[in-house]
Amino acid sequence: MHPAYSVIFFTTASGAGYGMLALMAILGTAGILPADRWFGFVGLALALGLITAGLLSSTFHLGRPERAWRAVSQWRSSWLAREGVLAILTYIPAGLFGIGWVFLEQTSGFWGVMGVLAAIGAFLTIVCTSMIYRSLKPIHQWHNDWTIAGYVALGFASGAVALSFVAHLFDVAGPVVKALPVALVPVAWAVKTGYWAFIDRTRSLSTSNTATGLRGGEVRSVDWPHTQENYLQKEMGFQVARKHALKLRTIAHGLTFAVPLAFAVLTLLVPNPLAGIAAFVALASIAAGLLAERWLFFAEAKHTVTLFYGAKAA
């Protein structure tokens, strides 16, 4: 599948934003994070900023962005519409929780309830994003539960790394905030490793034989219906990164997981401001790593339409 830059940025940025929002809301409500005005403002602004930038970016790949408002109407059947509905709904408790934290320095009682609702909304929005891909049967590499686990785990891992950095910035990073990336990054690492192992050892049920219904031997594509690349090949037949998949996976292992984990451990061992610098390195690394990981998620996905263009399996 063709990796559109706007969709890569959208899914990584909004995933990290929702992960961070959920963690801030839970830890804030539980009283583990201090209800400090400026920390709350910068932290929630970063989380909601990532979410909003991601959502806006997702409209850039639309053919008709001015009609984007229509995309929430079909929540009964469409995961994309459900994602839109939940994304909008989550702003309400998240905004109220932010008002309580930033203006009143309150994160308990009513404001705490808003925090819990914001966390639930954030979690469900990530699940909806993953379900858009999980629900597509023609793409074997997406149509499995690893897709959901991957989006949720990576959203929360990157959110925890971002939260740790902001908390260090305000010198309010307690042991829980420092330990969260150390706990969540390995979970995401395990899920992504499991995902890659799964797509390496399994194939789509569809082959060039089932696609054409021609039985009795190998089906060879001898003539295409067009002399130049058409929409189907540009959108679904993307091959550039597949060639470099192994290298990109190594980069993703390093930047998304190994480096952030090492520097997250460092934040537990050294005092501020060194710990703050370590938290920043972890954040910069996971941000770059996620772009490689998400690029691969698209580039390694093989659509069944390629079976009509010479692919034997998908």
Binding site: M1, H61, L62, G63, R64, P65, R67, A68, R70, A71, L80, I132, S135, L136, K137, P138, I139, S206, N230, Y231, L232, E235, M236, H303, T304, V305, F308
Partner: peptide, 26 residues
Amino acid sequence: KCIGCKLCSWACPYGAREFDEDEGVM
């Protein structure tokens, strides 16, 4: 009503839908 998100073309195993770049709709 089409916003040109292209998701329908991804959901089709047969590649039956084609996007009109000029009009921005499927």
